[in-house]
Amino acid sequence: MRHPLLLLILAFVVWSGTFLLVYATQATGCSLGWHNDEIAFWRSPLRLILIVLVLTSLVAIVGTLAWLRRRHKPAAALQTSSFIGEVKTYVAVAAIFSTAFCFAGVFWLTLCPL
């Protein structure tokens, strides 16, 4: 599974996984009553879980970028590998920004149906 195209999308694959996980956790948490709206909003266990999940995946994607950059060695022709390296970096940076942007709401927005 070392195909350059798979490495190219790796960071966004992590984003997709995060999306699935965060959305599923949020829905499951509401269904099982983890949000506990009796106490102050920031002490809700569901919110804490979601925040931890989001921060962890943010670290994971930044780690992915670092790993991609370190293991990048010109395998094919110079031009092809510079192309893949550059696009890979753009995509990973986009994925990092997307993760921070998409999931920022877990810090304060209403967690469960009223």
Binding site: F101, A104, G105, W108, L109, T110
Partner: peptide, 9 residues
């Protein structure tokens, strides 16, 4: 987007 989040709340 962030204005709209606050607005939604």
């Amino acid at each position: 987007t962030f204005y709209a989040f606050a607005h939604g709340e």
